[in-house]
Each structure stands twice: as C-alpha cells, then as structure tokens.
C-alpha cells in the first residue's frame, strides 16, 4: 500500500490529487468493514488518538471517535468550548502536556485558522484537522467527495454547486480545493455579502442567482446557514434567504437528471433546504454520514504510519 505525501492532514489546498485519490480508494475497504457483523479491525491497535475539540461539535467528533474505535485505536477526548487563550492555558502547553502522555495522533477542531499547523510545530504526533476557523475541514470535504465518487465513479465532467455562506465556511473551502484537484467543475452560490472578497480567484464560477447556479448541475452541496453568525445583518432575514437561495423541489428541475443532493449537517430544515428535498430520493445526506466514518478510518490509517494489519 502506498503512503500519503504528508504525515499530517491540515487541509486540501496543499494535498495533491494522488493523495486524495488514495484516501478515497482506501475508504472503499473501510466502507466494506462497516457492513460487517463485527465492525471492527485491529489496524490501529496500540495507537493512541486524541480528539482535541475547542469548538462544539457533535457529528464530526462522534464520527472520528467511532472511526478510531472501529480501528481498535485507544481514544481520548478533550473538549472545551472556549479558546485556549481564554481558558488561561496556552495551546502549546495544552498539547505538550497531552504529548507527554504519549499520544500518536491528534484530531483537532479549533476556532482559529492555522491552529492545526501550530500543533505540528509543537508536537510530534500526526495532526488531523477536523476544522480550523473558516479555513479548512478536509475530512468533511473528503467524505463529500467520496460520496460523489461512489455514485458517479468519476469527477471529470461533473458540475458541483456549493451553496451558502462561502465567507465563513471551512467546508466550502476544503471542497473547492479537493474538487478542483480531481477535475470536477465547481460553482459557488450565495448572497453577495457572504462571498468573501476576490472569491473569483478560487477559480470557480460564482453566482448570486440560485437558478442560474443550479442550471445543468449534477451535485448540489447545501451548506447550513449559521444563524448565530448572522447578527451582523449579512442578509435581511431568514425568510428572504430562503426565498432567494433555499433549495426547493421546484428548483430541482433545473438540475441534470441523475442529480445528487448533499448537506454536511446540521440542517436548518425549511431555511436552506426543504424537508422534501432533504428526504427525497436523490438525497445522500445520511450516506454522507456513514461514508464519513469510512473516510476518517482511511485517513487515520494512512497517516498512522502503521503497517497494514489484519484484513482492512
């Protein structure tokens, strides 16, 4: 089995296409494990993984934790909803203390861009970014991509529309880098106040009109509108956002026949997506969750530096 070119997964901007494809291919074998009676392999036996979460997270943390347990790793969780600075202990001290406990890998979620990089500078463990600020969330993008790849068997020629708050979304950023690396066509759509400056330099098509964005697209990945981030008046009202950008059944007609609806969750039903669409036959939202485990198992395995053990 070949290896990744880096011993950390900090983001997809710097991850080469070969690494991305290797992760997706490896995810296939772990996806198969999840269908077994006994959903556990001994691959990471003896490896200790820390889930270091400085922001609230339900599904990403549980998904990582399950992935680790299914690989037979020893896992510990460290969760706090405040930043290290506010807590009084510096991030460096926190991680060095943790490293002194002989950790092998750290999965980190942090509100500050670059915090996973900071960790690589103060400890030897493999670092996996589980979301840093509005910067990157590489495993979410990889599971989105895996879900697309499983369905279509390819990326070339596919048009993927990412809808929502581009400015504050790390999921969108990682999806942009990953999808572009593997040759998909990427379009962004959201209110102009939620598109960051010089967004066109990402090299994607940018739309303010959802109907134009959806026209002829294959995949729609709908981002959660973070209502708690909108006090600044980024758009006038939730109602207006829904009218202008909500994914409704009527709008699905604009898509290609074999379209796919995705959402990284948690959903605001009736805001960015209607229940009809979220629960419709082309929705793969729950598949994304299942695939997320397989992808995270693959990432953990590929970064662990462990030789393949067992039959994963």
């Amino acid at each position: 089995m070949s290896r990744l070119s880096s011993r950390h997964l900090l983001g997809l901007e710097e991850t080469p296409q070969e690494d991305i494809m290797l992760i997706l291919e490896t995810s296939n074998s772990f996806r198969e494990v999840l269908e077994r009676q006994v959903k556990k392999v001994p691959t990471l036996r003896g490896v200790t993984v820390l889930n270091l979460f400085y922001e609230n997270s339900t599904r990403t943390r549980i998904s990582f934790e399950l992935a680790e347990k299914r690989l037979s790793a020893d896992t510990i969780n460290f969760s706090t909803s405040t930043s290290s600075v506010k807590k009084g202990e510096s991030l460096r001290d926190t991680v060095q203390n943790i490293e002194a406990m002989k950790l092998d890998m750290v999965v980190v979620r942090h509100g500050s861009t670059g915090a996973p990089y900071f960790l690589t500078q103060c400890m030897d463990a493999n670092i996996i970014n589980a979301g840093d600020g509005a910067h990157e969330h590489p495993t979410q993008a990889l599971l989105d991509m895996y879900t697309i790849w499983k369905k279509y068997g390819k990326f070339a020629g596919l048009r993927v529309v990412l809808v929502g708050d581009v400015k504050h979304s790390r999921v969108i950023r990682s999806n942009i880098w990953g999808l572009k690396a593997v040759g998909a066509s990427v379009a962004l759509c959201g209110p102009s106040t939620l598109l960051p400056v010089e967004v066109e330099k990402f090299g994607c098509d940018v739309y303010h009109n959802i109907d134009e964005a959806l026209d002829g697209a294959d995949v729609v990945n709908v981002m959660r509108i973070q209502l708690e981030r909108q006090e600044g008046g980024m758009f006038p009202s939730q109602r207006e956002y829904t009218n202008l950008f909500g994914i409704t059944k009527e709008r699905l007609k604009l898509l290609n026949k074999n379209y796919t609806i995705m959402h990284p969750g948690p959903m605001n039903r009736g805001v960015e997506i209607t229940s009809e669409v979220a629960d419709g036959k082309n929705s793969v939202i729950l598949d994304q969750v299942t695939n997320g485990q397989a992808v995270r198992m693959a990432v953990l395995y590929l970064l662990s530096g462990k030789k393949e053990e067992g039959d994963a």
Partner: peptide, 15 residues
C-alpha cells in the same frame, strides 16, 4: 488585510 489571502485562509479581513 482583506484580500484573496484572507479569503483563502478564512481569516477576518480589515479592508
């Protein structure tokens, strides 16, 4: 600075 760099890094920009 608010620019493509802040956009890329997801950091809040000061224009």
């Amino acid at each position: 600075n608010e620019s493509y760099e802040s956009t890329r890094l997801g950091l809040k920009g000061a224009p």
